[in-house]
Design a protein around this nucleic acid. Structure first.
Ligand SMILES: [Mn+2]
Ligand SMILES: [Mn+2]
Length: 273
RNA sequence: ACAU
DNA sequence: TGATGT
């Protein structure tokens, strides 16, 4: 077990890369939930920090990138990860186009078995990667939830949307691309999640970053200005199906605003911006 | 202005 | 830089 030459403070008074353990102590002392890890090389540390969640606003808690960082951590200097269940999910996106993939709706564990931990005050060589639960706690959102998001490659343009389980990062559904707008996608994503949950017989809070779409859902009406033409026929069918569903179904599912400013990009984000 |  | 929306 070689000595660490650099450290990354992911969560602390002033997150960043440090070469002195004393600095790490300063940055983490008195910071509840501090997250840090030692690396054998400065390059390794810098790379980890670049890929780290607090350093990269685009990176959702459960994004593939975050997990990659997590798993690379486990083969790094430290012990402790002992094969995290999280890492295994890297890139195992359920391919389906329809709400077919089977989500795992197990109850939230505060610290998943075998998952990485964050322990303030442990030595520098102990692993300091974080479980999704711990990260959610740090960021302050409810991990026992789903996230939805939409992406457009031109607006209007080819649009798609998806939903993920915040406990695992697992993709629950993904539709598109079909020609549409950003807001239509955000709207359809929420309604799709609602309908999917009803089908599953569950009710789990849904995070969206779109105030617009949340408003449309609440009004049970998608007030898009996108003309219904030959090019937009498909998406308009989806819109009509969604609004019809809203008008004919009841739900008590909480639809929550994802605070991008505070938490970085939504876990369901497509990472294209 | 705010949110995508 | 431009578009989608409240
Ligand atoms: Mn969004
Ligand atoms: Mn996004």
């Amino acid at each position: 077990m070689a000595k660490n030459k650099a450290y990354v403070v992911f969560a602390g008074h002033s997150p960043g890369v440090y070469t002195d353990w004393e600095d790490v102590l300063d940055e983490t002392k008195g910071f509840s939930g501090a997250v840090y890890k030692g690396y054998q090389t400065l390059e390794e540390a810098k790379a980890a920090y670049r890929n780290g969640m607090l350093a990269a606003p685009k990176m959702g808690v459960n994004s593939p990138n975050y997990k990659q960082t997590n798993s690379s951590m486990s083969n790094g200097s430290a012990t402790g990860t002992g094969g995290s269940a999280q890492g295994k999910h890297i890139g195992d996106a359920n391919a389906g186009t329809k709400p077919t993939s089977g989500p795992k709706l197990r109850p939230l564990a505060d610290d998943p078995k075998g998952g990485a931990k964050s322990v303030q005050g442990s030595g520098p060589s102990e692993l300091k990667s974080v479980s999704p639960a711990k990260l959610a706690l740090l960021k302050g959102f409810d991990i026992n939830s789903w996230s939805v998001d939409a992406a457009c490659s031109g607006n209007p343009g080819p649009m798609e949307y998806r939903g993920v389980d915040n406990r695992t990062g697992q993709e629950l559904f993904r539709i598109g691309p079909v020609r549409g707008t950003n807001n239509i996608g955000e709207f359809l994503a929420i309604v799709h999640a609602l309908a999917f949950q009803q089908k599953l017989g569950v009710s789990i809070p849904i995070y969206s970053d779109s105030v617009n779409a949340m408003g449309w859902v609440k009004a049970k009406n998608a007030r898009t200005k996108l003309p219904n033409t030959a090019n937009t026929k498909i998406v308009w069918e989806l819109i009509n199906r969604a609004t019809t569903w809203l008008q004919n179904n009841n739900y008590n599912t909480k639809i929550l605003k994802w605070d991008t400013t505070k938490w970085g990009e939504n876990p369901a984000d497509f990472g294209r911006k």
